[in-house]
Design a binder for these strands. Structure first.
Lengths: 339, 339
DNA sequence: CTGAAAGCGCTTACAG
DNA sequence: CTGAAAGCGCTTACAG
């Protein structure tokens, strides 16, 4: 079933069929009718592969995320998918698992697939050259979550600084003073640490003690270990966790140590989690507009593809604080240890 | 940068370049060397779109899942992705959100993309004809999680009956008798209900009371409501939840009603969840081999694509019980209500 | 407005 | 073993 079959049935040339289907040129009413009817009767769907090869334009967007197991990215994917869908485009999804080598391979494959553009969550390091190359080739590209130093690219991200700032201010306003922060050593972690510190300064509390600013892993287990040790030595009054996986590690430590929340310890975490309400500690969270990150990314990318964009743009989306029981401001949850 | 450039640099015809790169025919050592060198120097990557159009074979697999927000499918996706990757293939991911209309559209688009084959989680109803059409066209297809009545297709799924059976047997062995079950009204739910009932029969307890066999939604909220009402009327000794989202709804009801687990109520759920240990109720779970479902699906699909398969095959994978504190068999978790 | 023809970048019979 | 040529299913100048 090809364009030939339609042309034959409609008694026109394949050129006319193509024109009707892409309506990019005037076609006489009667011929148009015949083509449409034939298309309909045969259930003809143009071969997108052939079209892509010939027209050098594509209905596919490549999406490369860092960890599909992370709910943050799942929601971003959904946003990208829905927005792409609205524009008749599909996505090819790739997962780097935070490995630069896999990012390189994925970019290569997606270019070989002639995707119309790329939406990428860069791996922590070692791929600046790849992104730079894409830019030099004028390949449509939007970067998510992380900016690349020395490289101006279309970027969509949350306001990490402000989110952390708001979270810590929330704690300070509730009267908490000895506030620990656990930050993974990636770019977003650093921005959130700056917000953490600034909130202290603006509240007139001075710079927080270095002993309260901890490096966490971006994995649950590593964060759990950091928290376990911190809490064992001397319990702070409150803790700010800089990512969802850090939060989960901290919750595990809280459970194992039998710490009462919020009585003995308050908790605010960056990133909301699905089913946060069903967690051992339903925690107050800085919720990122994850879905919107995805839709905005598609928006920017399409503009770039269509040549409607000039200079690289940075879209920084606002976050919002979802207050739950873990700071004692709302209702209280008392968590008890295993027996 | 095309095959022309490579041919020119290596001083051979494009046919020779193609032969070397696909090594499907003998090429003299010296020419082969030159081609390889030129390919390397230019960093040439064949255009997969052109290849697909001409060779009528594809390096892309279409994957259609029912709900990307569900951790079950996230893990399946990862399995598919990794296995596909191992065979030099990529996936185009689509999400139906359980909507038959979207399944239809996705199938259409993926066929227009000339994917090599399709891995599909069918939506609950209304798409038997679509799958049947694929089968009649001999389009490579593997179905996940659900069988289609009256249609024999390559299928990969968990042993739902046995999983539910094991879970309930576990409860019975621990001494629980009044065991409620909450099942969403989809095929997997029905199989699990049968396992639930059979475990009762085999233990000599007779058929469980209909009042203890409940229809839940496959969403969290709906399941919560069912559980809330059930628990409010008369608390059973134990509850078996037939899917992860049902489990989350039940956990919410448990929290709100201040039910003590496992003292007043034991809980076993189908589907393990990531961070189940960090939930309000770390529950004993029937863990599906989700990742393996994905890898097996790719395995079957590749065999089908390569014409190595004859009759449709049904792969039923074993599940395993992950024992946590929610049945009192291990350590006890006492959950207390909000204050 | 319409059709015949060229061509997108490949692969693969067909000759030699 | 190697190359010239045909052709995958489309789109789009080019004529008319």
């Amino acid at each position: 079933m090809t364009i030939q079959d339609v042309a034959q049935r409609a008694n026109v040339s394949i050129a006319t069929v193509s024109r009707v289907l892409n309506d990019n040129q005037r076609v006489a009413g009667e011929l148009r009718e015949r083509v449409l009817m034939a298309t309909d009767q045969l259930g003809y769907k143009p071969d997108r592969v052939a079209r892509r090869l010939r027209a050098q334009k594509s209905e596919v967007i490549g999406l490369i995320v860092a960890d599909i197991q992370n709910p943050h990215f799942v929601s971003v994917i959904q946003g990208v998918q829905d927005a792409a869908y609205d524009h008749g485009m599909n996505i090819i999804l790739c997962d780097t698992n935070e490995a630069p080598s896999r990012l390189a391979e994925n970019i290569q494959v997606l270019r070989a697939e002639s995707v119309a553009g790329l939406i990428i969550v860069p791996t922590p390091s070692g791929n600046i050259d790849l992104l730079q190359e894409l830019q030099e080739d004028h390949f449509p590209l939007v970067v998510l979550d992380r900016t690349i130093e020395g490289l101006a690219l279309d970027t969509v991200m949350s306001d990490n600084f402000q989110g952390a700032y708001d979270a810590v201010q929330h704690l300070i306003n509730l009267g908490y003073r000895r506030i620990a922060g656990i930050f993974p050593n990636v770019q977003t972690g650093i921005e959130r640490r700056n917000g953490f510190i600034q909130a202290h300064l603006d509240a007139g509390l001075g710079k927080p003690s270095p002993s309260l600013i901890l490096n966490g892993s971006y994995r649950v287990q590593g964060s759990y270990e950091v928290a376990y040790q911190l809490f064992s030595e001397r319990l702070p009054e409150a803790v700010f966790t800089a990512t969802n996986f850090v939060t989960l590690g901290v919750i595990r430590a809280i459970r194992e140590l039998g710490i009462l929340v919020p009585n003995d310890l308050a908790l605010v975490g960056f990133d909301d989690l699905p089913w946060a309400d069903e967690l051992f500690i339903p925690y107050t969270a800085v919720a990122q507009p994850t879905y919107e990150i995805g839709t905005q990314a598609v928006q920017l990318l399409l503009e770039r593809i269509n040549g409607m964009a000039e200079a690289p743009r940075l879209v920084k989306l606002p976050v919002r604080l979802v207050v739950r029981a873990s700071c004692g401001s709302k209702q209280r949850t008392i968590s008890t240890p295993n027996l």
